[in-house]
Amino acid sequence: MRLRFAAPLLFAVLAGCDTPPADTVTVVNQLSQQMLADYQHWASASAALANSTQALCQQGGSLTASQQSWREAFNAWAALQPALIGPLAEQNRSWQVQFWPDKKNLVGRQVKMLLDANPSIDQAQLDKSSVVLQGLSAAEYLLFDQSIDLSQTEQQARYCGLLLAIGGHQTQLSQDMLSAWQGAQGFAATLSNTPNQRFAEPQESLAELLRTQVSSLELMKKKLGTAIGRLSKGIAQPYQAEAWRADASLDSLRASLASLQTLWGQAQQVGLRDLVNDAALRERIEHQHAQTHDTFAAFTSGLQSLLSNSDDQQRLDKAYLELAELQRLYEKDLARALNIQMGFNAHDGD
């Protein structure tokens, strides 16, 4: 007996199905360009956050404007989740952007410890410090925590050094990552121009793209599931939610989902959908994307208030199940349709 994996293209020819409207090379190229655009957006949003905090700390700018810049940077980062492949996914660099889960309030404790020991921290010092302090999670603490009010001059004296250093660190990191994606030797080109030392063929690039997207869905489930108590016998855990201080959890999930949906494709834009021969499966995934989008769009308030209402908790449960179904479709059905083995040694080894 011979071990055989699905061969959808061959099957399509034999069964007389319609051929897909795009080939793997075209789709990988489109996805890598889309992800490159996501990295550009993140770099811009990070620079805007740095500018905004400089205005707040040095030019009398408003706290509200800095908070809004943080939200935009955080959403840009969330949109990168389905594109966390390549340089930012390696060497734990992503920890420099966000520290979550934070079960023991390490962000709050480490900020306090740092500023008690070194009130005049600058970016060079922060670059060598703990990842807990370098990212948007620490910036969120400074901009949103109820114990801090950065519209007050005396509070600025204590916290602005760190806030400015974070802005500088995020600007540098996002620019470095963008540079690593751009150009003839950049990661977008590495994905698209196979074979090379990293990807032996377009199918390998595609497989890693899909694996990254499945991982992003797992993470989305974990983010929502942790908050609504999926891991704690149904008891909601509002302070374990992602970005609970800014109440940005749902915005983050919406941004990740929107990014994923863009990579899936639509009528006018090539995406993964264009590689799926099976029209019924294409329709199922399309439908699930739409349903998940609508479910999350229907939440008009933040997660923190929803968690305190039992009717809303049920709606959040439903949203979780929509995410779970989308993940199942990607991990099982879409992977099979694209002839991609998801791998198992990382998750089920010995």
């Binding site: 994996f5 030392q197 032996a200 199918q203 390998e204 083995q341 791998g343 198992f344 080894g349």
Partner: peptide, 29 residues
């Protein structure tokens, strides 16, 4: 477990990677 298998050739210039003509994915530990 997911992609193509590789040969890592030890050369004077370092390690050079080549894809092997084996089936991709599914390989255990």
């Amino acid at each position: 477990g997911q992609g193509r298998c590789r040969l890592l050739s030890l050369t004077a210039e370092g390690i050079h990677t080549t894809a092997l003509a084996l089936p991709a994915g599914g390989w255990d530990n």
